[in-house]
Design a protein around this nucleic acid. Sequence first.
DNA 1: CATGAATGAGCGTTCATTCAT
DNA 2: AATGAATGAACGCTCATTCAT
Lengths: 199, 199, 199, 199
Amino acid sequence: MKKKQKIIKEAIRLFAERGFDATTTLKIAEVSHVTEPLIFYHFKNKDGLFTEAIECIFFEYFSRLESLAVKTESEFENLENLIHMHFDYVAEMPNESYLLTSVRPARLRDFESVCIRNREEQRNRLNTFIAGCLKRGIQKKEFWNVPVEPTVRLFISSLIGLMRQEILSLSDRETDHERIISELKEIAVMYCRRSLVKD
Amino acid sequence: MKKKQKIIKEAIRLFAERGFDATTTLKIAEVSHVTEPLIFYHFKNKDGLFTEAIECIFFEYFSRLESLAVKTESEFENLENLIHMHFDYVAEMPNESYLLTSVRPARLRDFESVCIRNREEQRNRLNTFIAGCLKRGIQKKEFWNVPVEPTVRLFISSLIGLMRQEILSLSDRETDHERIISELKEIAVMYCRRSLVKD
Amino acid sequence: MKKKQKIIKEAIRLFAERGFDATTTLKIAEVSHVTEPLIFYHFKNKDGLFTEAIECIFFEYFSRLESLAVKTESEFENLENLIHMHFDYVAEMPNESYLLTSVRPARLRDFESVCIRNREEQRNRLNTFIAGCLKRGIQKKEFWNVPVEPTVRLFISSLIGLMRQEILSLSDRETDHERIISELKEIAVMYCRRSLVKD
Amino acid sequence: MKKKQKIIKEAIRLFAERGFDATTTLKIAEVSHVTEPLIFYHFKNKDGLFTEAIECIFFEYFSRLESLAVKTESEFENLENLIHMHFDYVAEMPNESYLLTSVRPARLRDFESVCIRNREEQRNRLNTFIAGCLKRGIQKKEFWNVPVEPTVRLFISSLIGLMRQEILSLSDRETDHERIISELKEIAVMYCRRSLVKD
DNA sequence: CATGAATGAGCGTTCATTCAT
DNA sequence: AATGAATGAACGCTCATTCAT
């Protein structure tokens, strides 16, 4: 039981660091301190291991999304929290973030069912969250009367672009990483406010 | 000579469609209608082929960046053109875009030299372009007095987030792709104006 | 105890259907509704299971041979009964027949001890039975004065050739299987009579 | 070119001696004095190698069948030659004979197309040959008026039973093998004559 | 009796790369 | 410039078998 979790954990790290194809099952076994066949005892095959890993990642991510308590007084604060959550997520779990934001983290025989399905779920949840904020904010006159649907799309695209930037900055071990990302977060929130909030 | 170009072209397609590791030199040879050893005659090895392919892609991309004629009357129009250029680039060359925006399109023995180097070059060029627009715009009172450096970072991150979105929408063969992307482009330009331009 | 018999029964089916090497102990466990280690509790190893299976098969076969009541009035009738018994045996137990007539049903570490030993026993018993009939028949002037030893060999060879034919026809699910085999049996008996019996 | 033939030759030997599953591609490579991947260069996979091997075997066998010159004066002599040919074939090519007469020499993904197809072809050719002899012999009053179809079946079954016997005797390294097989051949011819030929 | 977890050994297959021509 | 033949290295995966419980 313990070992299965360990395998998943190490697999995520290796898949993120080297990519699916460049990660051998033997290497995963080594760093997990188990023998190779144990991987195939716990998972159907390499694709199956990857699938479970992706499910784990999205499960954790969705938990974080759900636990974003929705404030009622200020809709903008909700969006701000959403932005913060994503920056924090990348900082805490860079490998998971990388796989989460990857367009094609692996090419599986049955690719659709894992990555695409979860990505759609992610889009739906983000959609619901952001569109909700926008609509309520517009109704409460907190926000300008912006077109909801395209604004949501733009918001999501930018959010993921920002995550990508944070991941890159982390993996390139950029000097001043902390400061830059912190500034980036601030400015993102600032432009969000400026674009949506009346005064 | 013709054949070498053909190899690079097909390699780009396959690398984008299936990833570096999942693309065999044999497959590249087949779809290029050459024999496998010819690839090794023209390129040092698979990594070398990939390197040349990446160089080609960035060369074309940098050409497009350079050919963005810089208007002097309106700085906002320059930024607008930059946004349009990137949307057009994805639409015209989806495979190239995918490799261009990929965080780690391949894990080469000497990875730094090609992907990271070009990505830095790209960041520098975008930086120069956007920072120039912002500074001149601020000076000319066309723009608000925004902090230049973080704004540039946010701009670039969002731009690449938008490209990613367009690529995804293409590869998922989303219904209404045309309309959605067109709307996304418009709204991106709109928020850009709203955030920067004084009324 | 019940389970051990079940394992042997299913093992025979699988060994016959797919061959020894292509039959995994896991598969045997599954179709027997037991877990894999139980097989190794009941049998020393896979070879041991196969050995017991073969012993079972020959035990049943030898029982049938022994229970062929020997008529004294007509020696030919005894041979006829022998032929019928073999046709019936194939029809009733095709998997067992297949393993019984297989030249090399498995390559065990200690192959001799089970397949070859039983095959020799089989040859000896058939030899005794047939040679006895022939000698008595010749003495009683029921049969022509044929050379006993070679005739026995020919008889056995043909008999097994006929079994093989019946097995093949069964496994190929030949249309008209029933009719063809029935005709084959008749004609075999007919030629046997014609060759041996004095008008 | 030379090497491909060598691989097939050695593969036939090993497949016959140990069975398909127990014969590893590495072992085939070793005894053929080539490296393992060369096998996969010349053949699609292990099944493909087996398939070509079987085709070779039947090709040679069919050649021998065809080159049986058909005498016109005596139909019995034709049948006698057929029997001799099969005995000789086993003596010369025991491994090939074993695979040829095996009910299921391997369990391939696409099993039908090789073994069953060739076996049907074999049955058809033998059928044509033997039925032709019988019919002409009956017409010429050389033979008794036996029922052709079932007689042919019996003939074929016995023939293969005899081959099996010769193979077994060879592989068991029976003492007196030569004499026994020689006697078996004689007696087979004798009973054939006695059963068919008038006088 | 029974089982979940675990493994050593090995197998079929792939692939980038080389070499003689 | 071009290719058919060949290979070292490694990979995903399987399987009989064991062991602690």
